[in-house]
Amino acid sequence: MPKHVLNPNKWIDLYVDYLFNYTISRVNNRDIAQDLVQETFLAGLKSMKNFKGEATERTWLISILKRKIIDYYRKINSNKGKAEVRITSNNDSETEGDWLQNRVADPFDKTAEDTLQNEELGDAIYNCLSKLPKKQADIFRMKTIEGIETEDICNELEITPSNLWVIIHRARTAMALCLKENWF
């Protein structure tokens, strides 16, 4: 197996979207997510000599990012009095003040499970996206995820609309196939 090497010059271009999406599904705040990603890159830069070459760059960066996310949660919970267990109740006007009924699980609340699955789906999508050629991945991301108008993308990248649609078509075909293999 070839030994993996680090190339920090390309980190931002290659991994920033993946890391950002990974963070935002876990901290739910764009500014904080951006800070955490930035810290991750800087921390990675500092500890480059500790990289043993056993994992890929991305896996290594993700492992740093995970520590950063844990640290973040530890920090916001470390202030005195904040570490208490927060009780959330169903805010239903009919049962207001009725403590016991408030504590019954909300049968319609399936968000936790959904969120968990969406996190994994988001990771899977970025995994597939990183397998595409760079140009296809960029254009697909701009069009589909950022939702930029066709005309604006064409102007920015100096391509014709028909050229753009061909690239989109190739990217979509590859993405659909990749997700079919990696997602149920």
Binding site: V16, D17, F20, N21, I24, Q34, V37, N118, L121, G122, A124, I125, Y126, R141, T144, I145, E146, L179, W183
Partner: peptide
């Protein structure tokens, strides 16, 4: 799937 996952990226 993309809509459901709510993927996002940095602007």
């Amino acid at each position: 799937l993309i809509k459901k996952s709510q993927v996002t990226c940095l602007d």
